[in-house]
């Protein structure tokens, strides 16, 4: 998608969509990035919802809290009076809620569940499961209370890059199975929202070969399926090296002496090896970064957090997400 085709961004934060779908290869930190984005977009008295759909309880683990129920809960305060709420969507619960809404099942719904019918229905048709999960996300995104939207933005910690196309492409999966009826209508509604400018899919990656390859593949896949790709978010980046050239052992020894550090043979050799590995790594990172730039999408780089992703780290990431543009 070229820049001209992307919806304009009135707020100037670079995050114009209202539903942010965050994907990425396993291990790239997509849950942390999704949480940081929900925090960032809640700043200034706004309210956001952070949603997970894979039953991993990644949000609860990240925030060090008890497992999240199928219920929107207060998760964190954002700067200047904002609020982030969290929700772990469960397909079975979503189906019961859905049936209840349209068919007033009540106790009969619980009986069906006891019988395993709900589990059965969501198992036999994986597409049905996804349409229930995305359907719940759509409902939260479009929900209003009075004249006001309940959430200024919804951030979805989505399935990883390997499964994201299929997960979002709900109509194709359900159309195979349900040719008519409310599920079909429901999936069409979800598909329309997911393909509208309201939704942006962001791909989180590291400057490592596999994640970058999967990012490139996923973006091609998503684009072919008609989804709007928002940003490429490069996680765990390190500040550039100002000198960035090989250092000689003699030079290193002089420097160590000047710094008042031991400058014995082993120390010099060890640091020299470290410097060499560092440069190899950086060169590889630069070439991977160039591959990502070639995608022609807006790119945001997040710093490597030396102490891991704690609350302070999340705040750092949130800050970097909105100020990077």
């Amino acid at each position: 998608m070229r820049a001209a085709e992307r919806p304009s961004d009135p707020a100037g934060t670079g995050w114009s969509a209202r539903l942010h779908v965050v994907t990425g290869k396993g291990g790239t930190g997509k849950t942390s990035v999704a949480a940081a984005l929900a925090l960032a977009l809640a700043a200034g008295g706004r309210r956001t919802l952070l949603v997970e759909v894979e039953g991993r309880q990644g949000i609860a683990q990240l925030f060090g809290i008890d497992p999240l129920p199928y219920e929107e809960r207060h998760l964190a305060d954002a700067p200047d009076g904002g609020e982030v709420r969290a929700l772990a969507v469960d397909a079975e619960e979503a189906l019961l809620e859905y049936l209840d809404m349209f068919y007033k099942l009540g106790a009969a719904g619980r009986a069906l569940r006891k019988l395993g019918a709900i589990d059965f229905a969501t198992t036999i048709a994986p597409g049905l499961r996804d349409v229930l999960l995305t359907g719940k996300v759509k409902e939260a995104t479009t929900r209003t209370s009075g004249q006001r939207r309940v959430y200024d933005a919804v951030v979805l910690d989505a399935p990883p890059t390997g499964r994201i196309g299929r997960f979002l492409n709900v109509t194709a999966e359900t159309a195979r199975l349900a040719k008519v009826g409310p599920i079909k209508t429901q999936s069409e509604g979800v598909a329309a929202l997911l393909r509208s400018p309201i939704t942006a899919v962001h791909v989180v990656t590291l400057l490592e070969e596999m994640p970058v390859q999967e990012t490139v593949d996923a973006i091609a896949d998503l684009t072919a399926l008609g989804f709007g790709v928002g940003k490429v978010i490069v996680n765990g980046t390190r500040p550039p090296l100002p000198a960035g050239r090989p250092v000689s052992a003699a030079e290193l020894r002089r420097g160590l002496v000047a710094a008042g550090l031991p400058a014995d043979r082993e120390t010099v050799a060890g640091l020299h090896d470290e410097a060499r590995d560092q440069l190899i790594r950086r060169e590889l990172e630069d070439s991977l970064r160039a591959d990502l730039v070639e995608l022609g999408l807006p790119m945001t780089e997040l710093p490597l957090l030396p102490d891991g992703v704690d609350r302070a780290g999340l705040a750092t990431l949130a800050q970097a997400l909105v100020s990077a543009d």
Binding site: L241, P242, A243, V247, L252, G255, A259, G260, L271, Q278
Partner: peptide
């Protein structure tokens, strides 16, 4: 940091920061 203040040892300072 000390090397940065001293000047003239940019490459070593960088190696030490990376370390």
């Amino acid at each position: 940091e000390r090397l940065a203040e001293l000047g003239g040892h940019e490459a070593t300072a960088e190696v030490l920061r990376a370390h």
